[in-house]
Design a protein around this nucleic acid. Structure first.
Lengths: 146, 146
DNA sequence: TTTAATGCAAACATTTTGCACCCTG
DNA sequence: CAGGGTGCAAAATGTTTGCATTAAA
């Protein structure tokens, strides 16, 4: 986790950018909430709760920077805005989203990675990334409301 | 294709809703552009080009209705707005998107469907739908610009 | 001390909504 | 002719940008 932070410093240095208080806070917040998938506003609220006030515009700028650097991934959970998670890419995964309570669960995609690679070769694409969301109803919601 | 239209009529009737000029035009436009994945504004422009003026608000309302009915699917191609395609679900598919030219190609997901169903069972979810986008660089873009 | 980063407010883009009028069933 | 549908304009979201000020390096 701290290795990730070092990568961020390396990225900034190699691009002539600066490590700032806001960037550190935002990135650490994402690193420390891997299962939460916060959106921009939630990141601001979480930091505010710790008495760390960061402007929303700065949060958006930092998020874009982190995504560009490859250290963070933007996820679309079907809510009309982006959610963010750390991208330690050893653990590429899809998201299983409950349509009733909104719970988000991650899963490793056994076999899916390979299937997608096969498709890339077939169609002549050099693949970069993929995004897989699965929607359904979790056991609790099925039990509680038929 | 006309069977789809009949389904739409059935859906409307069974929900106490009315078939209108706007609804017919929007749905037929989507049915007739399966590979295009238009967004709301593009649907309006295409209809306008045929001298069929429909208000954008009505187009959005109709799109939501069509998605609710299950006859149309909203697709996120990473452009910050939704694209729409007919959902003749025999041909469930993923989207292969070129990060350079934006070309969108569809592919059948051999084996992926099954892998996802296995995950649903494992995690105790009753699955509803899934969405798979793969990003990369198409052969033309790779050839033309290294 | 130089150059980039921040915060704020304004601008943008997409989508939704309130309301008076219109049309389908 | 009753109840849903439409268009328009306004509002609601989510995100980006211009600019004067602040802070890394």
């Amino acid at each position: 986790m701290n290795a990730e932070f070092t990568k961020f410093q390396g990225y900034l240095r190699s691009h002539g950018l600066k490590m700032t208080r806001a960037r550190e806070l935002v990135f650490r917040e994402i690193l420390s909430t891997p299962g939460i998938h916060p959106n921009a506003d939630e990141i601001r609220r979480r930091l505010r709760a710790k008495k760390k006030e960061i402007g929303l515009a700065t949060i958006y700028r930092t998020l874009n920077l982190l995504v560009r650097s490859g250290l963070v991934t933007a996820v679309d959970l079907g809510e009309g805005h982006s959610h963010f998670e750390p991208d330690w890419n050893e653990t590429a995964h899809g998201h299983l989203i409950c349509l009733s309570c909104g719970r988000v669960q991650e899963f490793a995609q056994a076999g899916i990675r390979e299937a997608i690679h096969r498709i890339g070769e077939e169609k002549g694409y050099r693949l970069d990334k993929f995004s897989l969301q699965v929607f359904g109803f979790c056991r609790d919601c099925e039990t509680n409301r038929g």
